[in-house]
Amino acid sequence: MKNKIRLTLFCLIIAALWVSTAKAQTSPGALPAVLNNYPWTDSELIEPAALAASIKANTVTLPLIINIGAVEDIKGAKHIGAAGKSENLKALKSMVATLPKNTGIVIYCGCCPFSKCPNIRPAFQELKKMGFTSVKLLNLPVNLQTNWIGKGYPLAGS
């Protein structure tokens, strides 16, 4: 009986360690939004491959793509600049002020991992506060270089 208890306890400890290790990533998808302190949910992320495929297909239903960082522009993106600066956040608000609230919008920064980025939270939260219902964040958990450019996805001018 004691061996069964010890074995069960050992298995529980191993399982707990495995779960905590498996979730120790920088991607927002690694933890529920409530636990990782991100204002977006997993359903509000768009994968780079999906956006790149839409851009390459030149679909007429492309979302408004907005660069809210200090990184290179993705093909078709409007450049606002670092949304952590109040003047750039005002420019973002001005850019979208007259758009219908259901307009598809994709924002991205890509300067650094999500956990350290000073730009995505203010921009995402402002768009949500303004009532936009179809806001997506480009899932660049490491940075634009690693998650977009390094994969050969389209940049402005290409």
Rank of each mutant, 00 (worst) to 15 (best):
L35T: 14
N88M: 05
A57T: 05
L99S: 12
K116D: 13
A52L: 07
I66T: 05
A50Y: 03
P118G: 02
A22S: 15
G81N: 04
A49N: 06
A70P: 00
I46F: 01
P122L: 10
T26V: 07
C117W: 03
F114Y: 11
K78D: 14
E87G: 02
K129Y: 11
Y108S: 01
S54Q: 13
I65L: 08
K116P: 00
V60Y: 07
P32R: 06
A83L: 11
P39D: 02
Y38F: 08
V71E: 12
F114M: 10
G84N: 02
V34H: 10
N119P: 05
S86R: 09
A22C: 06
T26P: 00
A33R: 09
E126P: 02
R121L: 08
I68R: 00
T41L: 04
Q25W: 14
T103E: 09
K128N: 01
K90S: 15
C111V: 01
K78F: 15
N37F: 09
R121D: 10
P32A: 12
G29Q: 12
G69K: 03
L92R: 08
P39S: 05
I66W: 08
L99P: 12
N88T: 08
I120H: 01
L51M: 06
S43W: 01
C117T: 02
K93Y: 00
A50I: 14
D42I: 15
F124V: 01
Q25D: 13
V96R: 05
I66K: 06
K116E: 12
N37G: 00
I80S: 03
V60M: 08
A57L: 09
S94D: 15
T59I: 07
C112E: 14
F114W: 08
E72M: 12
G110R: 08
L64T: 07
G81Y: 06
T98K: 13
G29I: 12
A30F: 15
P48Q: 09
P39R: 04
L62N: 12
V96Y: 03
G81R: 04
P100I: 04
V106Q: 11
P39C: 05
L99M: 14
P63I: 06
T98A: 14
N36H: 13
I105W: 10
F124Y: 10
K93Q: 15
K90W: 12
T59H: 00
P28R: 09
K75S: 11
I74T: 08
K85W: 07
V96L: 05
P32S: 12
Q125S: 14
